[in-house]
Amino acid sequence: MFNKVMARKPAMPGKVYGAPGAGYSGFISMMTAIVLIALWFLITGMGWIKPIFLPSPFAVYDKFVEALTIGVANSTLAQHTAASLGRVMGAFLLALITAVPVGILMGVNRVMRGLFDPIIEFYRPLPPLAYLPLVIIWFGIGEFPKVFLIFLAIFAPMAIAARAGVRSVSMEQIHAAYAMGASRSQIITHVILKAALPEIFTGMRIGIGVGWTTLVAAEMVASARGLGFMVLNAAQYLASDTVIMGILVIGFFALLFDMLLRYLERMLIPWKGKV
């Protein structure tokens, strides 16, 4: 039985050997989601868990409709979503235009690597809540500290991914470009940067996920709107239907942005995994 499970599938046309893990997994993912939702209906419908701990899907849907129309926590769901999207996307774009160049410089220049590597590696493992009080002391309780906190969380993985992409470029490619008369700047822009793009996109995907993870911590700072604020406010009143609804909305947008980055990656890096 074990041998049958572990047996390799026939190779795809044009391939000599089938790659481990190759194949379409979308159907399995869809079935997993269906099973989890069915279990949710079953558990809540049979009353195995009290609604205060796990409300039914119908209760969450009703709260979603209420949030869309009437609103919760003094704002509609659209207003909460717009506030959170502005913070996350602002921090992501700021990290994109700073972390990627810093990561590339760290990969091609030992001085820059020596300057930035200790700083990034020191704060990268720290949870955002650890330096949240310091951010509040430095910048107050306005909008900027929320964006800055998310920016810090996104910056480290994006910079590290860019640096790893630069370091993964083969010396044969660099030597071949030099042999054809390329200058140092042309090597960086046409060889190193293009070869590092897959790692950079991986860092972007990790960064946007970390950004949504940090959103709740950022909106603890004197917020009046935002998905994270909505979830925290509902938790104070044990409104678990609002909490789960907010979590689902945050998860939806995080998944949406991840799928968008995957699409851009396929469009801009069609050679990934083929060379």
Results as ranks from 00 to 15, higher is better:
residue 117 D to E: 15
residue 102 V to L: 13
residue 240 S to F: 10
residue 7 A to G: 08
residue 249 V to Q: 03
residue 31 M to F: 14
residue 58 F to C: 06
residue 246 G to I: 00
residue 112 M to A: 12
residue 147 V to R: 05
residue 52 I to P: 05
residue 168 S to W: 05
residue 66 E to Y: 07
residue 212 W to N: 01
residue 153 A to L: 11
residue 78 A to P: 02
residue 120 I to N: 13
residue 78 A to R: 15
residue 177 A to K: 04
residue 175 H to W: 12
residue 139 F to Y: 05
residue 161 A to L: 00
residue 14 G to R: 00
residue 270 P to F: 02
residue 171 M to Y: 12
residue 174 I to F: 06
residue 49 I to H: 00
residue 13 P to T: 03
residue 18 G to I: 08
residue 250 I to D: 06
residue 206 I to Q: 00
residue 3 N to H: 10
residue 104 I to W: 05
residue 227 L to C: 03
residue 78 A to V: 15
residue 178 Y to A: 13
residue 223 S to V: 04
residue 136 I to G: 00
residue 238 L to H: 12
residue 138 W to E: 11
residue 96 L to A: 13
residue 254 A to S: 11
residue 28 I to G: 08
residue 252 F to A: 07
residue 268 L to F: 12
residue 179 A to D: 14
residue 274 K to V: 15
residue 196 A to V: 01
residue 154 I to D: 03
residue 111 V to P: 02
residue 188 I to H: 04
residue 102 V to T: 14
residue 19 A to R: 12
residue 134 L to V: 09
residue 61 Y to D: 06
residue 123 Y to K: 09
residue 5 V to F: 10
residue 255 L to C: 02
residue 148 F to N: 09
residue 59 A to Q: 14
residue 274 K to P: 11
residue 263 Y to Q: 13
residue 115 L to I: 15
residue 107 G to M: 10
residue 183 S to Q: 13
residue 142 G to T: 03
residue 139 F to T: 07
residue 229 F to A: 05
residue 253 F to H: 06
residue 210 V to Y: 02
residue 54 L to F: 11
residue 272 K to I: 12
residue 153 A to I: 06
residue 214 T to H: 00
residue 114 G to N: 15
residue 117 D to M: 12
residue 101 P to E: 07
residue 38 A to M: 02
residue 152 L to S: 07
residue 158 M to N: 01
residue 142 G to C: 02
residue 117 D to A: 14
residue 187 I to S: 07
residue 20 P to G: 01
residue 200 I to A: 07
residue 203 G to M: 04
residue 154 I to C: 05
residue 209 G to M: 02
residue 118 P to R: 12
residue 230 M to E: 08
residue 245 M to I: 08
residue 169 V to W: 01
residue 123 Y to M: 08
residue 218 A to W: 03
residue 5 V to L: 13
residue 47 G to C: 13
residue 221 V to D: 01
residue 224 A to L: 09
residue 249 V to S: 05
residue 155 F to V: 02
residue 59 A to K: 15
residue 170 S to D: 11
residue 93 L to R: 10
residue 126 L to R: 13
residue 77 L to G: 11
residue 236 Q to V: 11
residue 215 L to H: 09
residue 163 R to T: 08
residue 83 A to V: 06
residue 123 Y to H: 10
residue 6 M to T: 09
residue 195 A to H: 02
residue 38 A to W: 03
residue 6 M to A: 08
residue 183 S to V: 01
residue 252 F to R: 06
